[in-house]
Design a protein around this nucleic acid. Sequence first.
DNA 1: AACAAGGGCTGTGTATACATAACGGATGAT
DNA 2: ATCATCCGTTATGTATACACAGCCCTTGTT
Lengths: 213, 213
Amino acid sequence: MRASDRAYAALRDDIIEWRLRPGTVLPEVEQSERLGVSRTPLREALSRLTAEGLTTTAGGRGVVVTDISLEDIDELFELRETLEGKAAALAAERGDAAVFLQLQRELLEAPALISAIDPARHEYYELVARLDSAIDAAISNSYLAQAMRSLRVHLVRVRRLAADDYARLTAAAAEHAAIAEAIAAGNPRLAQAATTMHLHRSLSHVKATHTPQ
Amino acid sequence: MRASDRAYAALRDDIIEWRLRPGTVLPEVEQSERLGVSRTPLREALSRLTAEGLTTTAGGRGVVVTDISLEDIDELFELRETLEGKAAALAAERGDAAVFLQLQRELLEAPALISAIDPARHEYYELVARLDSAIDAAISNSYLAQAMRSLRVHLVRVRRLAADDYARLTAAAAEHAAIAEAIAAGNPRLAQAATTMHLHRSLSHVKATHTPQ
DNA sequence: AACAAGGGCTGTGTATACATAACGGATGAT
DNA sequence: ATCATCCGTTATGTATACACAGCCCTTGTT
């Protein structure tokens, strides 16, 4: 693997996992020494992060980790509803029903995964990621898929803010199962509606856990 | 201006204006000499182009200019309809009516601009760009605006393929005026419908002029 | 004591030298 | 004759040295 890829992945994870807080400046020499690479590949990594919106160049003062405000979350979910609603509808039109039926079955059994010992819920999130991938493949629209991929980076970051308790995750699994069911049934409008429902509930949950004060 | 910015702008223009045809390989040393910059800023320019999708890295063989097939155009417009339809609806809800009323007036007089001597129709395209900017500002959603900006690069490239004759441009101006009117009237569904109409006609025009053989 | 000017320092922007991997051609063996 | 292998060339990947600009601190003057 290339040094620039390693630097990019390391920095991206640090930002997504909130180990690098918003506002943190990332001087090139300091970070290149921390990650054990030279300045050249590190600069490329920073360029990619800035293109994705995870960092911004603060005019002569280096790049800084971007903040995510509550307004940002609203905007993020507004775009997400647009893109993922369309994607679900297209998947219902073009997707393979068998694939989504299988995903629906697995999602209905997801509570077992959530109650398992893994506190990070890797198995559950991996299952949801497989649903995303199946939708990506079904829509056969690389531009739309690319737009959603660039969104998901920010969404993972937001997800780390929310308290993903057992109750919410089981509800979310049921909502995902409903999306998969609608796609498997070949019903575009229902798939879009199920997606809208799920995103609104997710957004409500995030805002409820993040603005109690 | 930085050397990397100049290299990026030059290469982007060359690709958009089809001076660099799809499939053209862009070796770093050759292009750096052509543009009068070193390899380092040129590499950053190529990274940005690749992130936008105008070029792709061809594993060890350098970066190549990406192709735009007819399927790509279909996918592009599918995403465009989703994003710009939503944007028009949001602009109708949140925008300043006076701004769009003024734009509508100017668009209704656009045929005068088109029949002017300028063969590149700079004035007309500048007016359309102002409508895009007004919508961007009205939606107050930076993520959606960013997604549309990254799309427009590809769309300009496609536009260069189409025969923008007088008849099509005057029709397009009327369609744009209808969008501005709907936004000014504060009617989201009408604005979205007008956008859908315009994009479908644009797509039909592109496909009609590009697949006669 | 306060303000302005200058110098140093820290940062990014650029160039270039070196390392390394892959493609192509040529040559040999089968 | 054809295929495999080796070597040379050429490309990118990386490191580092240099250039330059902006901010802060210090110092001098008023």
